[in-house]
Every structure is written in structure tokens, then in C-alpha cells.
Nucleic acid binder design. Structure first.
Lengths: 203, 203
DNA sequence: GTCTATAATTTGATAGAC
DNA sequence: GTCTATCAAATTATAGAC
């Protein structure tokens, strides 16, 4: 594979990423992907055979982007409060950088469960959750925080960080914000959410 | 319009509600709607003219279902903590009853903003938020809760209640839950979330 | 490797019989 | 009001030239 190939393949992948995350599997058009990449439909098929195959590649990539760093942070040996802060920062920064990411991943999982379940098996959930639970239990024992499960705490952190991005057009519409104001609010929310969570869990 | 008409129309609307909320606008098929209603495509067009028109009806209905009761609760004169409890109950009960609701509404708004913005104008946001903010300010003044804006508090409540339903297949996949376990967790989450929020805002 | 042209399929929509 | 049959448009996919 020479340099030209690599460029073309990458250009198509980038275009596909954009179109799929904006429109979803059902709404995406191979023509749009070809146009955005600067080539034609035939070439997209030449490189990736079918829409379904191309979608799978993109989905896997986005799914990893959604989880990879997060698992690293949760599994790290940072102190609990600092870890929570890092998760919040990670989430909000990632969603700011890839606006369509959470909607795409969650929505496509909901609507195409069959294509996707195999992705879950790549994540060592038991280890990650188990380790995090140990850390939490130790803090509970020390009396620094109230009783809570690692699952519920993680769900709460993710909820508070990710939901506003999923509801972005609604929040903007209801609260009369433009894009700039929304992003400013989300930056400020890093500390708002951290305080909120620490207030909720501290004993 | 006689009884037969009414039945047919209703059956088609019910089928459309199911198909659109499961598949979204782009993924929905008129054929599926006709099949599920027990009639044929031609009849669906006879009653509702086009896919776009039928979608608009369903979307408006779902959008109202999403907001109508919520606005009532937020605008009520319940004491703050009780109001928060009622919002949580309302959200979780509604999402339990209509599983596809939040994903459908938020996702279609993200992907078809042009069709939908007019819905927002039906909600008297300023009044609702303004009244709620007054109630919050009065509690802050009394020293019962910490400083927080009505917007952020509402976003937090909605995040904690709705996000788990949006991430349902992911949560079930990662945490090895079946549907029954998931719903049991969400019921239990009513009190978990209430405690979490009260812990976070109480002074 | 990239293009044009076209086949094959899917799907929204309509005509016309009953 | 409901159906069958069919059209027209959109869209995925392939054949074949360069």
C-alpha cells in the first residue's frame, strides 16, 4: 500500500466518521461520504466493500474513543476525589472535541444491538469495576464518604457529564443559548459537577 | 368519521409511534408501520399523506409526553425537596413506561433540528424557570441549601434520571444485567438519586 | 487506483378496482 | 375505506474503461 492509498483510505474514513456520527447508520448516505472525501461512490466501495462494513469500522473506532481513556482513569491509582475530577474533565473535554460521539454511540447501540454486542467483550469490566469498588469501600471504611456502589457512582458521573451533550439542542432551545454559550456553560460545569458530586458523597 | 375510521386511524398512529420511536425517522419504514397496524401502505398514505407528516404528528405527541407533566410539577407550589422527589418519580416512571421516549426525542432533535424548533415556543420557559429560581433563591436565603441555579439543578436532575435509560443497552451489556434487573435498579434509583441530589444541595 | 455508467434493490407514493 | 398493482425516486452496489 503506497502513500496515495493511505491518504485516500484515511480521507474516506474521516468522511465516513463525520457522516455516520451526524446522521446515524440509517440516515447516512454513501454519496455524502464520497463527496466529503473528494472521491466517488465506486471508490468508497472499492476500499470498504459495503456500507455495513464501513459502518462497523467507524462504530468500533468511536466506541473505543468513548471508553479507552475512561477505563484508564478509573483503573488508575489516583486518590478518589482526584479520580472523579479527572473523569469529569475527560468526559467534558472529549464530548466538546467530538460533539456527535455520545449520541452516535448510544443511539446506534439502542437501534442496532445485534451488530454491536461483541464490542463489550473487549472491556475487562469486572476488573475495572472491582478495583474501583475496593477503593470506594476503603474510603467508606475511613468515614470520608457515604455508602455508595461503584456502579451507581460511575453512572452518576457519566449522567451529569454526558447527558447535557445529548440534550444539547434541547438545552440550547429551552434556555436560549447559542453554541458558544453552551460550550462555556459546559466548561464551567466541570467544577459545578465536581462540587455537586463531592457534596453528595462526602460523609 | 365513524367508529371504524377512528379505530383504523388509532391503530396506524400506535404502530407509527412504535416504529418511529424504535427506528427513528430515517430508519422507519412505512411498510413496517402498515404491517404493525394490520393494514397496507396505501392506507397509511390515505390517512396521513406522507411519512414526513406522520412523523411530525408522532414527534409532537412524544415531545409533549416528554414535557407536559414535568412543567406542571416544576411550576407547582410544592416545597422544594418534595418537588425534586416528584420530578425524579415522574421521570423514571415515564421512561419505564415509554422506553424509547428519551432516545427518540433527543436524537431526532439532534438530527432534524429544522423540523422541530417550533415545538420549543409552546413552552413558557421563562415563567417556569423564573418561578423555580425564586423558590430556590428563597431556600438559599433561608440557609437550607447551597447556591445553585435553577437551570443547573434541573439539568442535574434530568441527567441522573434520563441518562441511564439512554445508555440502557450499554449499562446492561457492561454490568451484565437483563431487562428485569435494569428496571429493578431504576426503581431503586429513585431513592438513590433523591439522596444524592439532596446530599449535594443541602447546606 | 479512480472514474463513468448502469444494474439491482429498496422504499415512498399513487392509480384504480372493489 | 381498503386493497392490489405499479410507478418514481433514491440509494447501494457492480461492471468495465482508463
Amino acid at each position: 500500500m503506497n502513500k496515495k492509498d493511505k491518504d485516500t483510505e484515511q480521507l474516506i474514513l474521516q468522511a465516513a466518521q463525520k457522516v455516520f456520527t451526524e446522521k446515524g447508520l440509517a440516515g447516512a448516505r454513501m454519496q455524502d461520504i464520497a463527496d466529503k472525501a473528494g472521491f466517488n461512490k465506486a471508490l468508497v466501495h472499492y476500499y470498504f466493500t459495503s456500507k455495513a462494513k464501513l459502518f462497523e469500522l467507524i462504530f468500533e473506532q468511536e466506541f473505543k474513543a468513548f471508553f479507552f481513556d475512561l477505563v484508564g482513569i478509573v483503573s488508575s491509582d489516583l486518590p478518589l476525589f482526584e479520580k472523579i475530577e479527572r473523569i469529569i474533565e475527560h468526559d467534558i473535554d472529549k464530548m466538546t472535541k467530538f460533539p456527535g460521539l455520545p449520541n452516535f454511540v448510544l443511539n446506534e447501540i439502542s437501534r442496532n444491538p445485534e451488530v454491536i454486542l461483541k464490542q463489550f467483550k473487549k472491556i475487562p469490566v469486572e476488573n475495572v469495576l472491582g478495583g474501583f469498588q475496593k477503593q470506594i469501600n476503603s474510603e467508606i471504611k475511613k468515614g470520608t464518604i457515604r455508602k455508595i456502589s461503584s456502579e451507581q457512582l460511575l453512572i452518576n458521573i457519566q449522567s451529569l457529564c454526558i447527558f447535557p451533550f445529548l440534550a444539547r439542542p434541547m438545552i440550547k432551545g429551552l434556555m436560549r443559548m447559542d453554541e458558544k454559550a453552551f460550550l462555556a456553560m459546559m466548561q464551567k460545569r466541570k467544577s459545578t459537577v465536581l462540587e455537586f458530586i463531592l457534596g453528595a458523597i462526602k460523609a
